[in-house]
Simulated assay, not measured.
Amino acid sequence: MSIELNHTIVAAHDKKVSAEFFAAILGLRVGAPYGPFLPVETSNSVTLDFVDTDAEITSQHYAFLVSEAEFDAIFARIEEAGITHYADPGHREPGRINHNDGGRGTYFDDPNGHNLEIITRPYGSGG
């Protein structure tokens, strides 16, 4: 059996708001609740399982490999929503995208401070 990531849990102060944010920005859909989780499934069948917490949330990084057309659509939704985006993970270059490995990429935060990234080329793929 090959090893594949199946799901990961994403801590949120309001799982419904967070799941809907991810789904709306990425062009995905929120699935039916499963126990305490609210899933958002990506096209490679990995689910982001949002769960409520009252505890302090440690920022996590979630990177999504997207096509050029998907990048354009997601980027348009980021701009329409007035979300600040950055060319770098340290958030030092606001309002810019990067062109790493000959593709395009940008970083932005979700409502809980998780650092999200969209890229059109995997890192190390050349360009």
Rank of each mutant, 00 (worst) to 15 (best):
I3Y: 14
T42W: 10
F64C: 05
D52Q: 08
T84I: 05
G31L: 13
R29V: 11
E70T: 04
L5T: 08
P94L: 14
A11N: 15
M1Y: 12
I9E: 07
F21Q: 07
A73H: 02
H7C: 00
L5N: 08
I3H: 14
A73T: 12
G102W: 10
S59K: 04
K15P: 14
I9Q: 12
V51D: 00
E41K: 12
I25G: 05
E93H: 13
H13N: 05
K16Q: 11
F108P: 03
T120L: 11
Y34R: 15
P89D: 08
P122T: 01
H61C: 10
P89A: 12
S67Q: 07
D109Y: 14
H114V: 02
A19C: 03
Y107G: 09
I78N: 04
G102I: 15
N100D: 15
S18E: 05
H61Q: 12
T47G: 06
R77I: 11
G82V: 07
M1Q: 11
F71E: 06
Y107D: 05
A63D: 03
G35I: 09
T84P: 10
D88I: 07
E80K: 04
G90N: 05
I83F: 11
S2R: 15
G103C: 11
P33Y: 01
L65E: 05
P36Q: 13
H61P: 00
L5R: 04
I118S: 00
S2G: 14
A55C: 09
N6C: 09
F108H: 15
T8F: 04
T47I: 08
L5I: 15
H114G: 00
Y107I: 11
N115S: 10
A76D: 03
M1V: 14
R92Y: 03
S43Q: 15
P111H: 15
S67V: 10
A63Q: 06
Y86W: 06
A55N: 11
N98F: 04
G105A: 08
S59Q: 07
S67Y: 12
V51N: 00
D101T: 10
F64A: 03
I57A: 02
G27N: 06
N112L: 07
A11S: 14
T42V: 14
R29P: 08
G27W: 07
G31R: 07
A19V: 00
D54R: 13
G105L: 02
F64R: 05
K15C: 11
S45Y: 14
H99W: 03
D49V: 09
H7P: 02
V30W: 11
G126P: 06
R92Q: 08
E70S: 03
E20A: 01
I74E: 04
L38R: 01
I3D: 14
V40K: 00
R77L: 02
E117C: 15
V40L: 02
L38A: 02
P36G: 08
E56K: 09
T42C: 09
F22I: 14
N98D: 10
I57T: 10
L65F: 09
A63F: 04
G35R: 06
F75T: 07
Y107N: 04
P122N: 00
E93S: 12
F21K: 13
F75V: 09
L116D: 06
F22S: 08
A73L: 03
I74F: 04
T42F: 14
D109H: 14
L26E: 00
V10Q: 04
P94C: 10
I3K: 12
A19G: 01
R96Q: 15
H91P: 05
H13T: 04
N112R: 01
V17T: 06
